[in-house]
Nucleic acid binder design. Structure first.
Lengths: 203, 203
DNA sequence: GAGAAATATTGCCCTTTGTGCAATTTCGTG
DNA sequence: CACGAAATTGCACAAAGGGCAATATTTCTC
């Protein structure tokens, strides 16, 4: 990810092409309605190459979320000093990362997971990578301002509180061309309550 | 689980035997060091029967945690009125559920997951079932005292904050025969800070 | 820019897996 | 005890996973 030689670009392109083909087929025919062979013929690669990138269909489908696009170190974690608390930093990171297109796809992955529970594991796995990235970023940003486990707990609590949306589809009713999520959709309203609770504490 | 006819007991016994054999082989030879065939010969069942219970090796290994033993509805969620807040109820539930033996096994599953990342997904999946159970239990217990999403967020935050221990092994340095976890081990000390933060809120 | 080194893609092959179906065994109930 | 329900198993076959070696493409070095 840090590297971006021509070779690495092509590799990412391959990965994305395979993931995208897998996702498309999943929407079109259902997760059980196609085999790896179908994915690679659609994407123009060999079955053996697919195995070099993903361990199974589900992993490819989940990876089509492409959260890693937003995971460039040093990109998401620069904020003005007045915002400078770990929680608000994470909040901004999350609200920026979940663009409308991501949310729409997440929605589709959720409904696919209903028919095919195994997929769900891989979707949460993909989100877990985002969580790990956020964890590294924030503990690097704030260093020893807090004890090391504080970051783990904070990040864990934030993502843990967010994940339950996976249990239900939510509306993303916004114009197509919009790039960042807005106050008006369900997901963001849910974020409002989540972060309010996290600030206030639970009882 | 609510049922427990002789038939259901045997079914659970079969499941446990398979899971236990799978776990044993994983510790002994590593996750990649054996095949489903080995599991069933050890447990005395057929390959086909294994498939009736688990979808793959990893699922069986992770299920050897056997958290479901402690997931009897109406058992864990009865407390005296003075403790009667959702968070403290969950705290007691969690501290009760993670007995020493569970923690030891969890520790082993964590290190196995390091060599074989796919296993990790299934371990968190198993914990997720516990989370779901806790969610159902607590929202039933407190009904409409809180808005419905509050329970989701609370439970998610709690389990999310706990899961990061999966990233590192922890010491469970207690006598063998001890049944419940004690104040003296790392896991429980981690719990102390987790719940303190959740009560206080983050910033 | 040409050749060498590094890496990605592929084909081949074989073991393992997943699963529908039907037969068989085991269990629960009247 | 006998009948129905449900668990276990065998069989067969499509599909997946992955080691290995060959090939193609990119990057590096001079």
């Amino acid at each position: 990810m840090a590297e971006s030689s021509l070779r690495d670009k092509k590799k990412e392109a391959t990965r994305k092409a395979l993931a995208e083909a897998a996702f498309g087929l999943a929407v079109e025919r259902g997760v059980d309605g196609f085999v790896v062979e179908d994915i690679v013929t659609e994407a123009g690669y060999s079955r053996r190459t697919f195995a070099n990138y993903f361990s199974c269909k589900e992993e490819a489908i989940a990876n089509s979320l492409g959260l890693d696009e937003y995971l460039q170190p040093g990109d998401q974690f620069e904020f003005s000093p007045q915002d400078h608390t770990p929680l608000s930093t994470i909040e901004i990171f999350i609200r920026r990362s979940f663009t409308i297109n991501k949310l729409k796809r997440l929605n589709q992955l959720i409904s696919l997971s209903r028919e095919h529970p195994a997929l769900r594991l891989y979707v949460t796995g993909a989100l877990k990578e985002m969580q790990d990235f956020a964890g590294r970023g924030i503990s690097k940003e704030y260093g020893s301002d807090y004890p090391p486990e504080y970051y783990h707990i904070l990040i864990g609590a934030v993502f843990g509180a967010i994940l339950p949306v996976l249990d239900e589809s939510f509306d993303v009713n916004l114009p197509e061309d919009e790039e960042q999520i807005e106050k008006s959709n369900e997901f963001n309203q849910y974020m409002d309550t989540v972060f309010a609770h996290l600030r206030k504490g639970f009882n």
